[in-house]
């Protein structure tokens, strides 16, 4: 296999990167870890004339806790940076665990948070847990920066609200009242498989009562989606097995999966029911796992 020729740039600043993206418009693509983009280029699904490598943007490679505000995850952190992050281990192991389930170790060493999000693949592993935790993305472009809620970022398979000249700079997980969160990925083998269904939940439980809940589903619609009816149903209920099972049933009614080479829509729908129930149970019982 081979890659077609392209012009290559490796800017030293975010501003310069945005400037290049603005200058070349649709001809240009951002290259971060390359684990998705190089594959697409080899498979002739993508042939950018200009490749903007963001490898030099060191400032986007940090994971930090900002006191009183939340966790800031740089867009160029690799999945394994998340897996190994002490900040995440302490505050949101559920995010580290979601990252740990992506592809395989070599890909986790290259694939970045920004890439996983901006490729907008419906089965991506990070968006559901970020949505469940009410995270936002900071986008930077030639006209300045803006913050978009993770759940509003995606508009379709491979499509986001990002402008041609915008980069994802960071993901911000705000401090919150949620007491537990969890992401379950269901793939067709234990490693190196895309999610057939991914369910992320976050819950605020007090004295056995669910005060608040967020449920996000991956791989079962054109974009990661929130299961809002399920969330509404859960609020104020006791976290009993029956309630969580009922929540699963409601969630399965909120997804719109397709049938493809990996699974039928019917199967995915039922998996949403099962894993919503299971992810809720874990988040309720075990916290942010």
């Amino acid at each position: 296999m081979y890659l077609p020729d392209f012009e290559y740039y490796a800017p030293d600043s975010i501003a310069e990167a945005c400037q290049l993206l603005s200058q070349f418009g649709a001809k240009a693509k951002v290259l971060a870890g390359g684990t998705d983009m190089v594959v697409k280029m080899k498979n002739e699904l993508l042939a950018p004339e200009v490749v903007v490598s963001v490898k030099n943007l060191e400032q986007l490679k940090k994971i930090e806790y900002v006191a009183g505000k939340g966790v800031c995850v740089g867009a160029l952190c690799t999945h394994n940076d998340l897996v190994k992050s002490d900040v995440l281990k302490e505050r949101y192991p559920s995010v580290a665990n979601a990252a740990r389930q992506m592809a395989n170790n070599q890909v986790r060493n290259r694939g970045t948070v920004g890439g996983n999000i901006s490729n907008a693949v419906p089965s991506a592993d990070l968006p559901p847990i970020f949505i469940a935790l009410n995270a936002t993305a900071k986008l930077v472009g030639t006209k300045g920066e803006r913050t978009v809620a993770m759940e509003d970022l995606f508009t379709g398979p491979g499509k986001t609200v990002m402008a041609q000249d915008e980069l994802i700079a960071e993901v911000f997980i705000p401090d919150q009242k949620m007491t537990g969160s969890n992401y379950i990925k269901f793939g067709l083998r234990k490693s190196g498989a895309l999610a057939v269904v991914g369910v992320a939940v976050a819950v605020q439980v007090e004295n056995g009562v669910i005060k608040d809940a967020r449920v996000a589903l991956g791989a079962v619609a054109a974009t990661p989606v929130r299961a809002k009816k399920t969330e509404e149903f859960l609020k104020g209920k006791n976290a009993t097995d029956d309630v969580l099972a009922e929540a699963g049933v409601i969630a399965s009614g909120e997804c719109k999966p397709i049938s493809d080479i990996r699974a039928s829509a019917e199967y995915r729908t039922d998996l949403v029911r099962i894993f919503t129930k299971r992810a809720l149970r874990k988040a309720v019982d075990e916290g942010h796992v």
Binding site: N104, L188, R189, K190, S191, G192, A193, L194, I261, R262
Partner: peptide, 25 residues
């Protein structure tokens, strides 16, 4: 090994979709 039912084109000529068990399986 899977093929398109209409064209006979190979659908999963790769190790992502032709799933050998991994060390974890």
């Amino acid at each position: 090994v899977k093929f398109d039912k209409k064209t006979g084109k190979l659908l999963n000529g790769n190790f992502a979709e032709y799933r050998l068990p991994t060390a974890l399986d």
